[in-house]
Design a protein around this nucleic acid. Structure first.
Lengths: 132, 132
DNA sequence: CAGGATCCCCGATGATACTG
DNA sequence: CAGTATCATCGGGGATCCTG
């Protein structure tokens, strides 16, 4: 297998997110988008109903959550389980594919959360340098 | 234990991206943003000059690349090495922290690229279902 | 409760021109 | 080459109202 070092030598990969036209770029944006990432992250912890999810993903509006869930469901990352009861009950959970993706996303998020002190320190240094 | 939040075993983490006010959310957006993710992905392959990077990240404008690089540099993920020659030469490369983050990001991207066939298949099923 | 439909605004983004 | 400055735009995204 090709080394991960030289992407230039991976010409045989059918999908390349670095190419403007590749559909993988769209999916990447769904996954890493403002609300997509947080939604997948939340669903990684279990199954949730719409409004549970909305409270979990602090700040998301109904519209954006709905829209985000649709995009993720369409991409096959999220499964929507609706029960035709009254009042309605709908549960969302990750698919197998969704779990794979969320796993990587969580790793990224936790890495970031764990390094925020460094990030904030870097910002202060940067701002001090620029102010001069 | 906790009543509202059940972030499994990480209750003591000082930074929580799920909270609207947490600065980690901003950094996550720099990292996973439209151009941030691709820029980090490109820089994971080595050191690049401004216009090299611009060609690599297909579709990015000068302004957005510049802006993205500034944000990543400020967060301490990217190092900018400028040589006061004429014509000027500036190289960008990941910092140690940037490599850690990029590593996770690459894992996510490659996971996605490798599963795009499933994603596209899921989309077709979804669209067919909706069309009915 | 789970969302769809609408209105509307502001900020992200692109295009262009200019500079050291 | 490596950007910055400026202007115009387009759609992401919030607020609100409505329905099954």
């Amino acid at each position: 297998m090709s080394t991960t070092q030289e992407r230039t030598e991976e010409q045989d990969l059918p999908y390349d997110v670095f190419s403007r036209a590749c559909p993988s770029r769209g999916t990447l944006e769904h996954v890493t988008g403002r609300w997509g990432a947080l939604t997948l992250g939340a669903l990684h912890e279990g199954s949730f109903r719409f409004n549970e999810l909305r409270r979990r993903v602090d700040g998301v509006s109904e519209k954006m959550l709905s829209q985000t869930l649709h995009a993720l469901e369409r991409d096959g990352l999220v499964h929507r389980e609706a029960q035709p009861t009254n009042p309605p009950r709908v549960d969302y959970e990750l698919t197998a594919l969704g779990r794979e993706v969320a796993e990587r996303l969580i790793a990224l998020i936790e890495c970031l959360e764990g390094r925020m002190d460094d990030v904030l320190a870097s910002r202060e240094r940067y701002d001090a340098r620029v102010r001069a």
